[in-house]
C-alpha cells in the first residue's frame, strides 16, 4: 500500500468532489424532480407527486409529436450526413484526382464559416421550392457536415493502404472496399461522429425556429422554447409543466449518456488535438 493512500483526507476528498459534481448538476436534477410535482405542491412548497405534468405535456401540448419529429429529423440527418461524409472522406483519403485538394479545402473551410450567414438565403431558397414546413426543409440544410468528413478522412488515412489493395486484387469495387474494408475498421470513429451529428442536430434551435411555422412539425427545442415563452394559462408560469417538457427534451441524451460518454469524449478530443 502506498503511503498517501492511507491518509484519510485523500480517500474522502475525491468523494467530496463528487458531491460537488452533484451540486453542479443540481439545477438539472431539481428540474426533473419538479416535473413530478403538482402545481399546487410546487407553489405551496409541499410534497405531492403526480404524472399529470407529463400527461399534459404529451397530450395537450403535443410533446409526443415533437419527440417524434426530433427523432425523424436527427435520425435522418445522422444517417445521411454520415453516409455522405464517409464516402467523401474515403475519396479524399485514398484517391488523387484533379481538383481533389481544392474540393477538400472547400470542405475544411466550412468549419470556419458561421452557419448564420446562410440563415436568410436558405430560408428563401427552401421557401421558393415549397420545402419550408416539411421534414425535408429541416433536414436538408443540416446534412453536409464538413467536420465529420475532415475527421473521417484523417482517420481513414491512418488505415494501411495494403488492406485496400488486397481487396482490389480480389476484384472488389471501390464501394465494396469502402463498405467491407474501411467502414469496419473505422467503425469507432464513424460511431463517434454519428453521435456527434445526432446530438448537435437534436439540440439545434435557430434553423428549426425559422424553418417551421406549422406546430405539427416543431422539434422538441422549438416546442419547449415556445411552451416556456407563450406561457399557456394566462397566469403565473406553470413551472412543473415546463419542467416535464424540458425533461422529455433531454431524456434521450440523458438515458444514452452513460453508454456513449467515452465515444463522445473520444470524438471531441480527437477533433481538438487533430
Amino acid at each position: 500500500m502506498k503511503p498517501d493512500e492511507t491518509k484519510p483526507g485523500n480517500r474522502v476528498l475525491p468523494w467530496l468532489a463528487l458531491a460537488g459534481g452533484l451540486l453542479f448538476l443540481f439545477p438539472a436534477l431539481y428540474s426533473i424532480f419538479m416535473s413530478f410535482q403538482t402545481v399546487d405542491a410546487y407553489y405551496t412548497g409541499t410534497l405531492d407527486f403526480t404524472l399529470e405534468n407529463y400527461r399534459l405535456a404529451i397530450g395537450q401540448f403535443h410533446f409526443a409529436r415533437y419527440l417524434f419529429n426530433s427523432l425523424i429529423v436527427s435520425g435522418t440527418v445522422t444517417v445521411m450526413g454520415l453516409a455522405f461524409a464517409t464516402m467523401a472522406a474515403f475519396a479524399f483519403a485514398r484517391f488523387r484526382f484533379a481538383g481533389g485538394n481544392l474540393l477538400f479545402a472547400a470542405v475544411v473551410a466550412t468549419l470556419m464559416i458561421p452557419s448564420h450567414i446562410s440563415l436568410i438565403p436558405n430560408y428563401l431558397s427552401l421557401a421558393r421550392v415549397g420545402l419550408l414546413d416539411t421534414y425535408a426543409g429541416l433536414i436538408l440544410p443540416a446534412i453536409s457536415n464538413g467536420f465529420a468528413a475532415f475527421f473521417l478522412r484523417q482517420y481513414i488515412r491512418g488505415i494501411p493502404v495494403a488492406l485496400d489493395e488486397a481487396a482490389y486484387m480480389d476484384g472488389a469495387t471501390p464501394l465494396q472496399v469502402l463498405w467491407r474494408v474501411i467502414v469496419p475498421i473505422a467503425r469507432p470513429a464513424i460511431f463517434s461522429m454519428g453521435l456527434f451529428i445526432f446530438i448537435s442536430e437534436w439540440n439545434s434551435y435557430i434553423w428549426p425556429l425559422v424553418a417551421v411555422g406549422d406546430e405539427d412539425l416543431y422539434t422538441l427545442q422549438v416546442g419547449l422554447a415556445r411552451l416556456y415563452k407563450v406561457n399557456p394559462g394566462e397566469d403565473v408560469v406553470n413551472w412543473p409543466l415546463v419542467m416535464a417538457a424540458s425533461t422529455i427534451t433531454i431524456l434521450p441524451i440523458l438515458l444514452g449518456f452513460i453508454f456513449v460518454e467515452r465515444h463522445l469524449v473520444r470524438g471531441i478530443t480527437m477533433g481538438a488535438v487533430k
Partner: peptide
C-alpha cells in the same frame, strides 16, 4: 451535450 433550450429554461 444537453439541450441548450432546456438549460436556458431551467435557469
Amino acid at each position: 451535450v444537453t439541450s441548450t433550450v432546456s438549460i436556458a429554461v431551467v435557469f
